[in-house]
Design a protein around this nucleic acid. Structure first.
Length: 478
RNA sequence: UCCUCAGUAGCUCAGUUGGUUAGAGCAUCUGACUGUUAAUCAGAGGGUCACUGGUUCAAGUCCAGUCUGAGGAGCCA
């Protein structure tokens, strides 16, 4: 029977001094042959277990190594030591699983993140990753509750798709064809008729198009699922497998869309500020310690929590693409030719330009809207100026694009002609076009990269450190 | 994919103009100590210098290629 255990988190909340309780968890350190620092994952806080000298056999004490798992029962007392207020005076101790000290790869000291990335199966037992993944959970939960409270339907879109016309990047092929000796057509290409689905299939790169179908039935929906891109991207903000949140709303225009995105981000940040405080404080201190190494002018002006409170409390700046270009052209770095890339109306904003806007000029999240239609996707609604589409990107300090969205083109003829211009085959998307033929309505939506949001909230600089098992080019450990 | 940097003990790193048997701290192991806070003290063990080839009397060190990792860029969320 394991359900007699008390979670360490609740012990610190309730402080039931004098009562006898049982805890189970993993040993972080065993000091002075008397003190176990125990963590059970429910909180970043460790419970100190006190083993009076001589009360337990040497053969037991020797097995209290880092990451060994134990069950301990005793009385909760106030601590005589300085570092903690309470401790458990252990009367019964059972070792559930040994952890040989000469083999266990993690030491009770600071490891760098690259080493821990290679120990992905154990790194969640460290303070930093414990906090990151508890906050990841808190954010995921906050996302569901935000949409659920507003009557959005949680909509499951397919992970295996047969449409290759979504245009959101390279796709992973899904196949049961044998690696060698698969039957081919006369022209030498693979015969996908023999494949599992009788056609070529891929892992999804976006659930948006299927999300739009649901918005045309339920009004407001969101998806929250895994997404796959076979791009050879080697950066601190790209993964081959990541999680994306994609709300899609009928009867919304671009402004409604921006309002929702802003309210959504503020709400989930508020949720983490109130529910994940201890973990945020730990991560904040971690960043402060890290920044101590930097020269003063390179340090960030805010602490992690201050940054999140600022985002929660300040209205996002909203500027059109045209205004953004004007700001950039009048900026000092542009005049002094500090930008590596040129800026002209019609060109996509480069990372350095987005960073300037967000980190130097406005110093807070910025929504840029109404982009030139040439640099945006076929499904975005064309504006009356004939040059721009009703797109919007939310740019966050340190991360860049965290949300990309648009009002969708609901007019059948306009959509069809744009698809023809871009040579997108409509045969495969007849089901998508049908929504514009049968009861079409103005609608809009956006995509939020979940890991980028976790990065923003935790302050972790590499996206590989905010997902439990990162998949990147040349790397799918575990 | 491009540019830059890196790869030496389990971890973090030092290793001089190429020159004996490649070092340190932490961890580990052994012993001591005991109200500790990544406990402390003493001793011991631990190396395919990423891989392949080349230059040289001699390569951890120089050269070429490969692999892996990191940062930046592109693509994007």
């Amino acid at each position: 029977m394991f359900n007699i255990k008390t979670k360490i988190k609740s012990i610190f909340l309730e402080l039931p001094i004098g009562s006898t309780i049982t805890v189970m968890g993993w040993v972080r350190t065993f000091r002075n042959n008397q003190f176990i620092s125990l963590n059970d994952g429910s909180t970043i806080q460790n419970l100190q277990l006190y083993l009076p000298l001589g009360s337990f056999d040497d053969s037991i004490c020797k097995r209290l190594t880092t990451s060994s798992s134990i069950k301990a029962t005793g009385e909760l007392i106030s601590s005589q030591g300085k570092g903690q207020e309470i401790e458990l005076k252990v009367e019964k101790l059972e070792i559930l699983g040994d952890s040989p000290a000469d083999l266990y790869p993690l030491q009770p000291k600071k490891h760098n993140l690259e080493f821990l990335r290679e120990q992905a199966h154990l790194r969640m037992r460290t303070n930093t990753f414990g906090s990151v993944f508890r906050i990841r959970h808190e954010l995921a939960f906050a996302i569901h509750s935000y949409f659920h409270q507003r009557g959005f339907l949680y909509w499951h879109t397919p992970i295996i798709t047969s449409s290759d016309a979504e245009g959101a990047g390279e796709m992973f092929r899904v196949t049961t064809l044998p690696p060698t000796g698969a039957s081919t057509l006369p022209d030498g290409s693979l015969d996908f008729n023999a494949d599992f689905f009788g056609k070529q299939t891929h892992l999804t790169v976006s659930g948006q198009l299927e999300g739009e179908l649901a918005a045309m039935a339920f009004g407001e929906i969101y998806t929250f699922g895994p997404t796959f891109r076979a791009e050879n991207s080697n950066t601190t903000r790209h993964l081959a497998e990541f999680w994306m949140v994609e709300p899609e709303m009928a009867f919304y225009d671009l402004e409604d869309n921006m309002d929702l995105a802003e309210s959504f981000i503020k709400s989930i940040i508020q949720q983490v500020l109130s529910q994940g405080r201890e973990d945020l404080q730990f991560l904040e201190q971690r960043l402060i310690d890290e920044e101590m190494q930097l020269p003063a002018d390179k340090r960030s002006p805010y602490t992690l929590i201050q940054k999140l409170e600022l985002v929660r409390d300040t209205p996002f700046v909203r500027i059109s693409y045209t205004e953004a270009v004007n700001i950039l052209i009048q900026s000092n770095p542009y005049k002094k030719k500090k930008f590596a890339y040129d800026i002209q109306w019609g060109m996509d904003l480069q990372s350095e330009h987005e960073r300037y806007l967000v980190e130097k000029h406005f110093k807070q999240p910025v929504i840029v809207y109404n982009y030139p239609k040439e640099i945006k996707a076929f499904y975005m609604r064309q504006n009356t100026d004939g040059k721009t589409v009703a797109a919007m990107d939310i740019l966050a300090p340190g991360i860049g694009e965290i949300v990309g969205g648009s009002q969708r083109e609901e007019r059948y003829d306009m959509l069809l002609s744009r698809m023809n211009q871009l040579q997108i085959p409509h045969q495969q998307l007849h089901w998508y076009l049908d929504t514009r033929r049968f009861g079409t309505v103005p609608h809009a939506g956006f995509g939020l990269g979940f890991e980028r949001m976790v990065q923003f909230v935790t302050g972790m600089s590499n996206i590989r450190d905010v997902i439990p098992f990162p998949r990147t080019p040349k790397s799918a450990l575990y």
